[in-house]
Simulated scan of single mutants.
Amino acid sequence: MVIHRMKPDGACLFRAVADQVYGDQDMHSVVRNHTMDYMLKNADYFSQYVTEDFEQYVNRKRNDHSYGNNLEMQAMAEMYNRTIEVHQYSIDPINIFFGMYKPDNAPIRLSYHYGVHYNSVVDPYSATVGVGLGLAGHKPGLADKMLMKDAMKHSENFHLEQALLQDHLQLSDRDTTYEALEEAVARESYLTWLREQEMRTRSGQHGLEVTLP
């Protein structure tokens, strides 16, 4: 295991979780806000463990420099459906928080230092970035079905666009053909008219020559 050091700015807990879920500790604000939204949505449960007004508690914890605690870790374990293990100078965790279901996902591992700071503990040979982003409502195989549905929809749209394009090309070809035919008919009519005029002219000249003394 490798310890990724988090910035000691009051957001270290959320930074450590963001490091493992998103692969970027600077995503801590996203993790924090999702966590507080989750707690607010499940206020009936989480408010039992808060002595102050719960909405005030949630609003205070939305501040980027407000420390997270065990209550927020329980919410994140449920939200990402990943076990959270807290280590303190030992490979055996001193605390474990469980999600709503028993997952096969690797746990989120945190190291607790000096009673005030959290770091991220990762396995460099087992990437976990993105694990848990399906959230607790994840259904096995749903992602594959959605990908297949999107692929089929894309294929249908592609073929529809190709059919429309082909119809447009055929229509354009037909219009071009009609225009060419009309132009040919008009040209032929004009040439016919010229020939008739020429014949009339010649006939008139011939008739004039005959009547002269």
Rank of each mutant, 00 (worst) to 15 (best):
M1R: 08
M1A: 13
M1D: 08
I3L: 09
R5D: 06
M6D: 03
M6S: 10
P8Y: 03
P8L: 03
D9N: 07
D9Q: 02
D9T: 01
A11P: 04
C12N: 03
L13G: 14
L13Q: 14
R15C: 04
A16R: 00
A16M: 01
A18G: 15
D19E: 14
Q20F: 01
Q20C: 01
V21S: 01
V21P: 00
Y22T: 02
G23N: 01
D26M: 10
V30C: 06
R32H: 07
R32V: 09
M36N: 06
D37M: 05
D37R: 11
Y38G: 00
M39A: 04
L40G: 15
L40V: 06
A43I: 10
D44Y: 10
Y45D: 05
Y45W: 11
F46H: 05
V50D: 09
V50G: 02
V50R: 05
T51D: 09
D53Q: 10
D53M: 06
F54I: 04
E55M: 11
Q56S: 15
Y57K: 06
Y57D: 07
R60F: 12
R60T: 09
R62C: 11
R62T: 05
S66N: 07
G68M: 01
G68Q: 00
G68W: 02
N69A: 15
M73I: 04
Q74W: 09
Q74F: 08
M76C: 02
E78T: 03
E78G: 03
E78M: 14
Y80D: 00
Y80F: 15
R82G: 01
T83M: 05
T83F: 00
T83K: 07
T83R: 07
I84W: 00
V86N: 04
Q88D: 07
D92M: 12
I94F: 07
F97W: 06
F98Y: 14
G99V: 04
M100W: 08
Y101T: 11
K102W: 06
K102R: 13
K102A: 08
P103H: 09
D104E: 10
P107Y: 04
I108A: 00
L110W: 02
S111M: 05
Y112H: 10
Y118G: 02
S126K: 14
S126D: 10
A127F: 09
A127I: 12
G132Y: 00
G132T: 01
G132I: 00
G132Q: 00
L133Q: 06
L133F: 01
G134W: 09
G134Y: 10
A136S: 14
A136W: 15
G137K: 08
H138S: 09
H138I: 09
L142W: 06
A143V: 14
M146S: 04
L147E: 08
A151D: 04
M152R: 12
K153Q: 14
H154L: 10
H154F: 12
E156T: 02
F158E: 11
H159R: 10
H159D: 03
H159C: 03
L160H: 13
L160P: 00
L164R: 12
L165K: 15
L171G: 13
S172K: 13
D173G: 02
R174S: 10
T177L: 13
E179I: 08
E179G: 07
A180M: 03
V185G: 04
A186W: 07
A186V: 01
E188D: 12
S189D: 13
Y190L: 07
E198P: 05
R200M: 12
R202I: 11
Q205V: 14
H206M: 14
H206W: 09
G207N: 12
T211S: 14
T211V: 15
L212F: 11
L212R: 13
L212S: 09
P213H: 10
